[in-house]
Amino acid sequence: MRLTIADAGVMGVLDLQGGVQEHLDHLQRIGIAGRPVKRATDLDGLAGLIIPGGESTCLARLLDIFGLRAEIEAHYRQGLKLWGTCAGAILLARENVGEAPFFGLIDIAVSRNAFGGQLDSFNIEKLAPLVAREPIPLTFIRAPKIVRTGPDVRVLLSMEDYVAAAEDDQILVTVFHPELTPSLAFHRYFARKCGLCPARDAATDRDADWTPQSWFRFGPHA
């Protein structure tokens, strides 16, 4: 395990529900200090904040009840970079087909459960030339689709009839789960977007040590 911290900047992971440890695990793998964000004070001094996969209705409820929504919006206005994976992307989208948007901060439209249920979850590999030189393994779990991107939004990964990854100057969205694969490409990409310098001591973005149970080592009960 590489534990060198490449940069003093700290990356937050919203810690209300969902794939929190998995993101913290990947951050540690690229030598970036990660911090679980559970209360407003945890947002202070962050270089970026990851809103993980989980259930977006649950995350939305908890963000509202405990006042984190307004705090995240305030930090965003002061320049905080945000990355939403899956449910996180739904929360950040300006438009949510058939439903009210939540943060509404990036000019995209998402369609929830656009592939269907769990039997339609899948993984594939695709090249995202703006993110990494090698194909990236992508895990879609009850994923949404990005069905529209605004003029200020750059498409990072386009599929047949939808967009799977996009960004504007301050926000990255991915409808898949890089934290559930050995690929560190998107975590490195977001760290650089936040002005951090992720460690890179191999030619590949894939961590050879990764296993599906990697997150256990960092779990609260391990």
Partner: peptide, 18 residues
Amino acid sequence: ENRYLLNTQLAQMLKGGV
């Protein structure tokens, strides 16, 4: 094997929830 992994990963996304 890939399907089983996806199934364990959906459970991971439910962590911390009710």
